[in-house]
Design a protein around this nucleic acid. Structure first.
Length: 487
RNA sequence: GGUCCUGUGGCCGAGCGGCUAGGCUCAGCUCUGCAAAAGCUGCUACUCCGGUUCGAAUCCGGAUGGGACCUCCA
């Protein structure tokens, strides 16, 4: 079986994954800016990296997964001035900026919890690492690659480029970048048009501010990730991830800051997840075509026909490879919902399967294929295709059309536990055991009555019982061994 | 305008030189008192035009449609 390969944005091809210090793996993912509710597109990225984290754990790596919370310094535009997003929102809602941060951080955790993502090992905040950021900026200045103007510190991109490759992550030359960027106007303090702020001077009205060698101010958006990833994962670490939209600016600047500071390549593998689109257009806050996870769960949004369970949504997202765009539509979501239900029903069937002496299926081969799919840059589309092969085998065995030994059945259970539950992170919906038990008993009695009616050829009564149960959302399956049901 | 990605059957979505995934939908069959569920079978696709090759959805060139980034966004 081939080793795990990962598509590395740096080389633009799949590379065999080699951990820097096995069995340890350092994984850093750019987290959310918590000034408003997370939308579904954000969730897709975090679900993708949750899958990656889970698979690395499954392979036995000791992963330190760091995902930051941006709670300061993220400005509205590219002008490097004024308030950041939190302060702006805080003024609007007449609360403290940290109340905004707290509110949306809690909301973010709730939503990711609903999607069954594992919490990261460390979830550092930008405001909690102001010192580290200042130290890093100081070092970049000592190294001559940043300059101060009126209390604001800028990174000197053109000077950096004479020594390092600034556009390596996007495969662009400096000249091309210069050509494509906006001209400086008279109000600009920075020297070069690609230069970006490391530290921003506070204005009298700025709410969130910290003292620094350059006066009161706040950090630029990019420096937090450089400072925090270095603090917790070291000068060079294994994997850095984030959405594709961060590649050109945020991640490019992160690399520049780290190299400018300590002259080392900060990251071995850069991974970028693709966007979620709605009707072919990227879902984004500014486009206004996004909806909140809560709206998706309840169906309370004009774009939604109905509500969808978090696990059905997670499954929907995992059916597409993380590097492809995923187009959202009710039709696609409903198709996934049904497929997911079939996958989970089959697991229930598996629990009651009777073993044969002989085997007519090669389950070991199926397991190998599952690993091969995941090792090929986390190809969940292929993995899920193989899992449906398992579904077919289980259902056939249940219909006595194929034979499975006890070893086969045990291995199928292991495949489900490993791939469906541990790696894909899917689970059956939560339920209330007490009411479930009572309900099961009641339905059991009704089915007994129906069976009796059927034996007596009283089909009018048996059909009536069935129809009433269907009315209550309970589906009946008649098998050789009697009737089963599910909601 | 610049840089890059992409166009697959009714829908979603893998594959990225030969073996032509998978899910959903639809039709038929088996099972069943009738259903449902499940299984089996069928629908056999790669935007267009050239080229390379014994062979191309897959590589190359061109056309055309869509998208992303270059400006805040995962």
């Amino acid at each position: 079986m081939q080793a795990l390969s990962i598509y590395n944005t740096l080389s633009r091809k799949k590379e065999e994954f080699k951990a820097l210090n096995p069995p340890f793996v350092g994984l850093y993912v750019c987290g959310p800016t918590v000034y408003s509710d997370v939308h579904l597109g954000n969730c897709r990225t975090f679900i993708s990296f949750d899958l990656i984290y889970r698979y690395l754990l499954h392979l036995g790596y000791k992963v330190r997964y760091v995902r930051n919370i941006t709670d300061a310094g993220h400005l509205e535009g590219d002008r490097d001035e004024g308030d950041d997003k939190f302060a702006k929102k805080a003024k609007l809602e007449q609360v403290e900026p940290m109340e905004i941060v707290q509110k949306y951080t809690v909301g973010f955790h709730e939503v990711l919890g609903a999607f069954n993502t594992l919490p990261p090992s460390i979830e550092p905040t930008a405001t909690g690492h102001i010192c580290e950021q200042i130290e890093m900026i100081k070092q970049i200045m000592v190294n001559g690659l940043a300059y101060e103007v009126n209390g604001t510190v800028y990174f000197d991109v053109e000077k950096y480029s004479s020594e390092f490759n600034y556009g390596q992550l996007t495969n662009r030359k400096l000249e091309e970048l210069l050509e494509g960027s906006r001209e400086l106007n008279g109000q600009d303090e920075k020297k070069g048009k690609l230069d970006f702020a490391l530290w921003i001077a506070a204005k009298p009205e700025t709410l969130m501010r910290w003292p620094s060698p350059w006066g009161w101010g706040f950090p630029g958006w990019h420096i937090e990730c450089s400072a925090m990833s270095r603090k917790y994962l070291g000068d060079t670490f294994d994997i850095h991830g984030g959405g594709m939209d961060l590649q050109a600016t945020h991640h490019t600047n992160e690399i520049a800051q780290s190299q400018a500071c300590y002259h080392k390549t900060p990251v071995n593998y850069w991974m970028h997840t693709n966007m979620l689109t709605v009707n072919g257009v990227r879902m984004s806050k500014s486009a206004g075509n996004g909806f909140l996870p809560s709206e998706l769960f309840t169906g309370n949004h004009p774009l939604l026909d109905k509500g969808y369970a978090p696990m059905a949504v997670r499954f929907f997202m995992l059916q597409t490879h993380y590097r492809s765009t995923l187009d959202f539509s009710n039709e696609a979501l409903q198709a996934s919902e049904k497929g997911f239900e079939r996958l989970m029903d089959s697991y229930t069937t598996l629990q009651n399967l009777k073993a044969s002496n002989a085997s007519s299926e090669n389950i070991t081969e199926l397991q190998t294929k599952c690993y091969e799919a995941m090792n090929d840059d986390f190809n969940t589309s292929i993995l899920i295709a193989h899992l449906f092969e398992a579904v077919r085998i289980i259902n056939s065995a249940n219909d006595l059309k194929t034979n499975l030994t006890q070893a086969d059945i045990d291995l199928l259970k292991k495949i489900y536990n490993d791939f469906v539950f541990s790696i894909l992170g899917l689970k059956t919906e939560e339920s209330n055991q007490k009411t479930d038990a009572a309900l099961a008993k009641v339905i059991g009695h009704m089915l007994d009555m129906r069976t009796r009616a059927k034996t007596e050829k009283n089909f009018k009564l048996s059909d009536e019982i069935r129809d009433k149960l269907i009315e209550a959302g309970i589906q009946i399956k008649d098998t050789r061994e009697g009737s089963t049901w599910k909601i």
